[in-house]
Simulated scan of single mutants.
Amino acid sequence: METTVEQPVLARLITAEDQEIPVSATLRYTADDPLAVFVDFPAEASLEGEDVTWTFARSLLDDGLRAPAGHGDVQIWPYGRTRTVLEFHSPHGMALLQFQALALRRFLLRTYQAVAPGQEDVARVVERGLSALFGGV
């Protein structure tokens, strides 16, 4: 049985001019890919006018809620007591978004109810990844 956790959230996109633009997003987790979390943005929130999904490790979100975490495409850090920053890098540029830390914590706790940390079926994830890599189903 596949378990999915979804939570709509409101983020604030921080522009180069230090303006804050409200952006809706959906946090998503599925037991079928238990090591990852997804942040889905609607088309109106992207430069290309298409839906955008960012995928990163669930453990990165957990770490980033407490201290700066991540290297490369996704970095997360606390911003004061009530906010958390997610920074996304792509070939098209960088996006800096602030989220309410409480919303991210609630989502993370709900994912832990679906699949407890350390209980992820890693063998299944590896098998599926290798199958996709080598052209299997």
Rank of each mutant, 00 (worst) to 15 (best):
A43D: 09
G49R: 09
Y79P: 00
T55G: 07
T26R: 15
A16Y: 10
R66M: 08
L61F: 03
V5G: 04
I21W: 08
W54L: 04
E17V: 03
Y29G: 02
L10N: 12
R81M: 11
E6R: 15
Q19I: 11
A43E: 11
A67Y: 05
F41M: 08
L27P: 03
V52H: 06
T26L: 14
E50Q: 15
R66Y: 11
E48Q: 13
P42Q: 09
V23W: 07
G70T: 07
V5T: 04
G70S: 08
D32G: 04
L10K: 14
V74R: 01
L61A: 04
T84E: 01
E48M: 13
E87V: 15
T15Y: 12
Q7T: 10
L60C: 09
F88P: 02
H71T: 11
V85A: 10
G72M: 06
Q19P: 00
W77I: 02
R66E: 14
T26V: 15
T4Y: 07
I76M: 04
W77M: 09
A45D: 02
D40I: 11
A43R: 12
R58F: 02
P34R: 02
F88L: 15
A45M: 06
T84P: 01
A16P: 02
R58V: 01
I76R: 00
I14C: 04
